[in-house]
Simulated scan of single mutants.
Amino acid sequence: MFWCVLHNSILTKDILIRRGTIVDPICSTCSLLEETISHAFVHCPQALQLWFEVFKPHAGSYSLIPTSDSVEELLKAWPTAIGLHLGKRV
């Protein structure tokens, strides 16, 4: 799934609009911002809650999530944020 995210292959609303589909650009999950890949996977409150659960064993690294501008930036920072062994697997 992250491969698709990194290659903009997930059909978020911003991509659908670029392809000519008429759709409301606001995120259907939170109704706060435009739905982009970064919003859906990093900045949406629902995504942040999921990341919080993932990072729970490494609570000090959770601050990495809201400060990341994109999924790619988050994954690049992962090895130094959580530990080299887990980072290599991700």
Rank of each mutant, 00 (worst) to 15 (best):
L33W: 14
F41V: 02
I26M: 02
T80E: 15
C27F: 05
V23A: 02
H39A: 03
F2W: 11
C44Q: 02
S38R: 08
D69S: 12
W78R: 03
K76P: 00
S28V: 12
P25F: 02
S9K: 14
T67P: 03
T29N: 10
W78A: 06
Q46W: 13
I26Y: 01
L32D: 03
L33K: 15
L33Y: 15
W3L: 12
L16E: 03
V5Q: 04
R19Y: 01
D24G: 03
D24I: 07
S63A: 14
E35S: 06
S70T: 14
G87S: 08
I22T: 15
G87W: 07
K56C: 05
H43C: 08
E53V: 07
S28N: 09
L84Y: 12
I15T: 04
I82N: 06
I37E: 05
I17E: 00
R89L: 15
C27N: 03
Y62E: 02
G87E: 10
F41Y: 11
G20I: 01
V90S: 10
K56R: 10
H58F: 15
H43W: 12
S28Q: 11
R18V: 00
P45I: 02
P57S: 04
F52N: 15
V71G: 01
G83M: 08
S68M: 01
E35R: 02
G87F: 07
L48S: 11
L84W: 07
H43Q: 15
A77Q: 10
T21G: 00
L6R: 05
I26L: 03
T67C: 12
L6D: 06
L86P: 06
H39S: 01
T12E: 08
S9Q: 15
G83E: 08
S31P: 01
V90T: 13
A77S: 12
V90P: 05
